[in-house]
Structures are given as structure tokens and as C-alpha cells.
Design a protein around this nucleic acid. Structure first.
Lengths: 225, 225
DNA sequence: CACTTGTTGGATCGGCGATCCAAACGCTAG
DNA sequence: CTAGCGTTTGGATCGCCGATCCAACAAGTG
């Protein structure tokens, strides 16, 4: 009877906002991966409740999508615009790669929901650059789709690798070494290619291999001219 | 006191097995997508309990991975082996595409965990065919990675589209039309490429576009020779 | 028969996303 | 100033999930 007070604790002084929530979500995702983004973690970090969150955000998917859009949009505004088309295409691809490397959850999200506004900007940029490259109109659609899909494929891989590194305790070099060792242990008669590729696997640089793939596509696109 | 019986209902006549569980999981996944694969659904379908499942299967991820491996393995054994390398590469890619089209959850899973034994077989096959194509040894690793990543990218897209079609009630034509309409409504000055591509989007065939991408890649590979 | 070993089914746990509602705020009208 | 009202907030609660654990059972072994 006596203590009916102190029930409602205290209220935020500063107002909550969608931007603030997305920012907190991004920090959680960067710190602990996709698994770390829970509504409870957000309410803790922002010292608020579920209702407040859901007032500004549709649901968890919406939140994840908004955070992803923000990262991708940052990449697209940061990329140089007046370079030679071929170099500009490499720059766009590399920009996405680096952003996904820094925020692996973006890769997973882009693989899962590729029809977000952020990717629209990417398609537009890639399409325009392909046009500038002299790719025939009728081929640009296919070419742009191919390039973006390649980037998304690598994005998914990166995200998977990041999950592997985050969950386990091993660092990158160890994971790569053990994987290479596993490949090398395979029967050379049944798996000649993979067996031989084991050395490459240990030594390879993700970023360089990604760029090599982009160059293969660009070479193929040049053949369309 | 009296009714201590009838507590333990009845026991399976036929024995459970990992194969049976994976089969049931595949059926659930095909019927209702990834969201439909829950341990409860499996125990219901197999008229058993959690313990029995976990006795044969590590955890849910293990189960999903096993089902995926099975599908991919089926593709790799079914693909023709003695064709001309270029055609064989197209056949491998198309086989994966069709399998993922039929079982979209496979696409999502491959994007999420690309280091499974099933993909090893794919890498081996692709690497061998690239060797047969005359691609220089030092480039095969990059080329195989690029091709597989492209396939994985498309796989993720397909899975995303399938989720969209499954969750909503619209069919493929409607979804495509509304997406195309949205693209067409964009400002032609700000989004010239996407605006123009809207028509293509409505008319395009996923499978054909996928193959066009494979051909671009193969043309780029040829340039490595 | 007793005893051991490998399976099976289900009660239970902690954690999740989402919903709902009452309390607290801040604005505006009188 | 204040009464009223729509907006914003915090937290109790719901239903569902994956996973663990253990008692009951079957089949093999002497």
C-alpha cells in the first residue's frame, strides 16, 4: 500500500529517434555480429523499453535494413565519380567490398534482402558506368546484374567467414591454415584441383582475389562490345 | 496411484535415422521455406520427441546443412561429365541454378555457409573444367572463385525472391510488375539507368539472365588465356 | 533371467520478437 | 495557470523457438 510510488522509474531526458536507434543497432552489430542485435540489447543500451523502440521502428527486420541502407549509402556517396569508367567500376566494387569487410553483417543482409533502396543506387551507378564503357544498351541489364550478383556472392562469403571468426576463438590466419591443411589432405586423385589449390588458399588475399574476379567480369563485358 | 500406466505413450515401431530426419526436414523446407523448419514441426511430422532428433543430429544448423549437402550432391552427380568444357561449365552452373530455384532455402544456406563439403565438389568440378578449358594454372583459383561466387550471389537473390513470394500472397508476375512500376516511377534524371531498365525487369527471365552472366564470366576467362 | 548399452519421448529452461497498456510528457485552448 | 489530449515512453506479458536433461523403453549379452 505504502509504496505505490517508484513504479515508473524515470524517463529519458533526451528524446529517442529512429536515427539514434539505428546508430545503436549499428554499434551492436559491429561489436558482436548479427546475433548481438536483439531488442533487449537495444533497450539496455538506450535505457528504454520495447514500446519506445517499436514506436520508431517497424520491427527488427526494418531496423537491420535501415542500418544496412545507411552503410551502403555511405559507400555510394564516398566513391569517386569522375574517374575513367573502368576504374570507377572497380572503385564501386571495392568500396562495397571494404564496407562489407568492415561490417560483415551488411553482407549477410544484402544477400538476404537484395531489393533495398540502397542497392538501387548501386545498380544505377553500375548501369551508368557500363553505359559510359560503351556496353551496348541491350546488354547493360544483364551485365549490371551479373556484376552486382558477383559482389553479393562475395559479400555472403565474407559474412560467413566473419561469423566463423567471431564464434570460434581462432584468428584469421589459423582458420585459413587449418582449412588449407584440410584441402591438402584430400585425395589428390579424386580432388586434384582443390588439392593443388590448398597452397593458394593459405596465401591468398581476399581483397585481391575479389578484384581479380571483378577484372574477369570486366574483361567479359568488354567482349560484349 | 492407480494410473501410473499410459504415461509413456507409445514408441516408434520403425527406427529413426539421420537420413529419415534429413528427408523430413527437406520436405518441410520445400513446403514452407526456411521458417517452416522448426524442431517442433519435425517432431510432429515424425511423431517423436526432441531427444530422438538430437540423438541423430547435432543441432538445427547441422540438419539444415545436411539437407543442403544432399541437394547439391544430387546436382553434381546428375550433371553430364563428358561434354565440351565450356558447355559443361554452363551445365554445372545451370544445374545449381535449377536446384536452388526448386529449393530456394538451399540458396540461402549456401550464401550463409559456403564452406560445406558439397561446395568442395563444385569447386573441384569447376576447377577441372577450367583447366580443361586451357586457363593458365595461376588464374584458375581466381576464376573458379569468381564463378562460384557469382552463382552464390544469384542463389541468394533467388532465395530472397522466394521468401517474398512465399510470405506475401502475390504471385511472381504481380511482384515483378509492381517492382517494375516502382522503377519506372523513379525520376529519369536521377535514375536514368534503373528507369530505363524497368521494362526489362518486367520481361526478363531469371534463368536466361543467369546464363547471360555465366557467359560474361566465361568470356572474361577466355581473355585470361 | 539380470544387466548393460543405445534409443526414444517429453518436461523444462532461458531467450527471443512482438504486442499491449498505463504512466509520463508536452503542447494547445480556454 | 490549468485542464485536456495526442504523442512518446517503459515494462509486463505472450507465444514460440532451440536446446538440455532425464526417465522410460528396447535390444543385445551373459
Amino acid at each position: 500500500m505504502m509504496s505505490a510510488m517508484a513504479k515508473r522509474a524515470q524517463r529519458r531526458a533526451d528524446g529517442l529517434s529512429r536515427e539514434l536507434i539505428v546508430k545503436a543497432a549499428t554499434e551492436l552489430l559491429d561489436a558482436g555480429g548479427e546475433a548481438a542485435l536483439t531488442l533487449r540489447a537495444i533497450t539496455d543500451r538506450l535505457s528504454t523499453g520495447y514500446g519506445a523502440i517499436y514506436h520508431h521502428v517497424e520491427n527488427k527486420g526494418d531496423l537491420l535494413a535501415a542500418a544496412t541502407d545507411e552503410v551502403v549509402a555511405g559507400v555510394m556517396t564516398g566513391v569517386v565519380v569522375d574517374a575513367e569508367p573502368r576504374q570507377a567500376l572497380r572503385a564501386v566494387a571495392l568500396g562495397l567490398f571494404d564496407a562489407i569487410d568492415a561490417h560483415p553483417w551488411v553482407g549477410a543482409q544484402l544477400s538476404r534482402e537484395p531489393w533495398r533502396p540502397a542497392l538501387l543506387e548501386v545498380y544505377e551507378r553500375v548501369g551508368g558506368l557500363l553505359h559510359a564503357l560503351g556496353v551496348p544498351e541491350r546488354s547493360i541489364f544483364d551485365a549490371a546484374g551479373a556484376l552486382v550478383n558477383y559482389v553479393l556472392g562475395v559479400a555472403g562469403q565474407n559474412a560467413a567467414n566473419a561469423r566463423l571468426l567471431a564464434s570460434g576463438e581462432a584468428d584469421r590466419a589459423v582458420v585459413l591454415s587449418t582449412a588449407a591443411a584440410r584441402w591438402a589432405r584430400l585425395d589428390p586423385d579424386r580432388y586434384p584441383f582443390v588439392h593443388k589449390a590448398a597452397t593458394r588458399l593459405r596465401e591468398h588475399d581476399d581483397r585481391e582475389q575479389f578484384l581479380a574476379g571483378v577484372d574477369i567480369f570486366l574483361a567479359g563485358i568488354a567482349a560484349l562490345r
